[in-house]
Design a protein around this nucleic acid. Structure first.
Lengths: 336, 336
DNA sequence: CTCCCTTAAGTAAACGTTTACTCAAAATGA
DNA sequence: TCATTTTGAGTAAACGTTTACTTAAGGGAG
């Protein structure tokens, strides 16, 4: 009563397992008549190949692992969506691994992925510690970084240029006539979403002959509450300003929230530009002007790169800086 | 230069593979000295067991498959988060399967999961067609339904009582003094998020002696645009009303958006209550009063049930109606 | 008619584990 | 001291495939 195996098919069709395997793989070496017998047996028994057994001999599982710092965010799930989509098109399955805050579970998961013999790994939104790098190197499978990178190790990545995008956002505000521009930034220790974005902001200011004032930068985590506080701080402590660049949509929304509570109107009293273009950026009111990161596409690209690395074991690493896009909605207005 | 196998360890430790296996599994049958030799060899070679080989003999892969109609939504990713979390605690990995719109890829994915020999399946937010049921039955692995159910087949599920929750939402509006209450509903053909919620709404009205008017119900898809249109229709065509119950947060936000554009104030001019309590429900302004579905917890419960079914092959199905919660924020106000 | 090549198929090893058996030596008991 | 049990280990089959190698038969060229 166990699921039928290739042996059962062979017996039913009165041929050897090798022959069954051959017709199933469309290889040569059998007559049309044999083919028919085999197919019929397959049909009658409802035979389905066992990918585990196949994986054992082929040393390929057609499975990739994807590591995320926090699976539930809209951000990660958009990336995942892209990854999963092309993976499945190319015949791969994806195992999701939520590494939790601080990557507490990263090492454990890396081990699981190794034991499960995944063919490749996508590593997202987290800095690639040496420890991780070593572990992955030992597994001898390709990796792709998404929304993160490593200057120490040559690993292909897919991300937008955060510095440039932040520069773009800030320049846009300047171009709209703003000169007193505040920023809500992530932690400066954050080498991806923190420091580079601040640098882009600062550079844009400088390039346009505007003085960079530390007092106009508030550090607020990426969560809602922290950014409300940041906005509050900015509003009370900072010199007057007419626009703010928030390092994430979530921050922008938090800031907007606080402004509304204080009776400030957006964009009339204050312009705001966000970063990420998460789904809810266009759902809030007024719809948020922001920097669009093509997350789903980035996921797709990562998947493609990874799979081509797996299948052709190309050794050349090729990273992609994908271009962001500034999407104008209704939270920034020109200052006359 | 291939990864070391148990044989390599055996050779290095000068024992048989059986012995290595035994010490690795903490079984009896070896001296302390042998244990040490083995452990040392494991250490030196950096041996990691091959889960594929293990899966082949044990007929267990420690992997579950999770089917989603649309991976990228906040809704699904919260459920996924819960599932993944407890799965990993219990030593299981999860393969995500995005079945796409209309479950176009469901059958294909079911086959993949079968070939990959997953130990169980979580099926979410989609109606379980007979075809799916048959396929799963043939795989002989346990299934858990999340946010959906089947009255035809006895399959354990985890969901909130949509009818009751909608009743609750509507009653709440009534209790706040509203008597002219409109609704933005999903398709009535939707047996989960559509029809039952409308029924709950209607029942609450009736039970409170309020006439149910079909003109006060607008059908709008679950996306933003559709719900904006629905709100527009309501505003122009429906008799006057002071509150609206939206069958999803997304709908509620769309409706609010449209109201803002029309200069209506929420909750001053119109009260709105949503459904789901997605992350952004408390991020919009004003924060949305809504029905909370404990999605992450539902995911955890599903995982737990599934794994206990896998491990103890209990035959009793036990479903859970988890309780929703009405979370009061700022989009509903009492009518004097 | 032979020789050789092609075609159609079978045999068996290999993939890396787990585990039921087997077995020798050591420990125990009388 | 001898019989019996316990302990520490090894042997080999099994899991379900894939695939290199072998083989037998058939067909064509000379």
């Amino acid at each position: 009563m166990n699921p039928p195996t290739i042996k059962d098919v062979a017996k039913a069709a009165n041929v050897s397992v090798a022959t069954v395997s051959r017709v199933l793989h469309n290889l040569a070496g059998y007559s049309d008549r044999t083919r028919q017998k085999v197919m019929q047996a397959v049909e009658e028994l409802g035979y389905q190949p066992n990918a585990i057994a196949r994986g054992l001999v082929n040393k390929r599982t057609q499975t990739i692992g994807v590591l995320f710092p926090h699976v539930s965010s809209s951000f990660s799930s958009d990336i995942l969506h892209g990854i999963e989509e092309t993976a499945q098109e190319k015949g791969f399955s994806v195992i999701v691994c939520n590494t939790a805050e601080e990557g507490k579970r990263t090492m454990k998961y890396l081990q699981v992925l190794r034991e499960k013999q995944v063919d490749g790994i996508v590593f997202t939104s987290e800095v690639l510690k040496d420890e991780y790098y070593q572990a992955i190197k030992e597994m001898r499978v390709p990796v792709i970084l998404v929304n993160t990178m490593s200057q120490k190790h040559m690993i292909p990545y897919v991300k937008v240029d955060d510095r440039q995008a932040a520069y773009h956002a800030t320049s846009y505000l300047i171009q709209k006539g703003h000169r007193e521009i505040a920023m809500i930034s992530g932690s400066l220790k954050d080498q991806i979403a923190g420091y580079p974005r601040l640098e882009g902001y600062r550079q844009a200011l400088t390039d346009n002959g505007i003085e960079y004032l530390e007092s106009r930068v508030a550090i607020g985590g990426f969560q809602l509450e922290r950014s409300r506080e940041a906005m509050k701080k900015l509003l009370t402590e900072a010199p007057p300003f007419t626009a703010v660049f928030a390092a994430s949509d979530e921050m922008a929304i938090g800031a907007m929230n606080y402004c509304f509570e204080q009776g400030l109107k957006i964009p009339d009293d204050l312009s705001i530009i966000g970063y990420d273009d998460l789904k809810f950026a266009r759902m809030v009111y007024p719809p948020l002007t922001t920097i669009h990161q093509p997350l789903t596409m980035m996921g797709r690209m990562a998947s493609e790169k990874l799979i081509s690395l797996i299948e052709h074991s190309e050794t050349q690493v090729s990273s992609s800086i994908v271009s962001h896009q500034l999407v104008e909605r209704q939270t920034v207005r020109s200052k006359p």
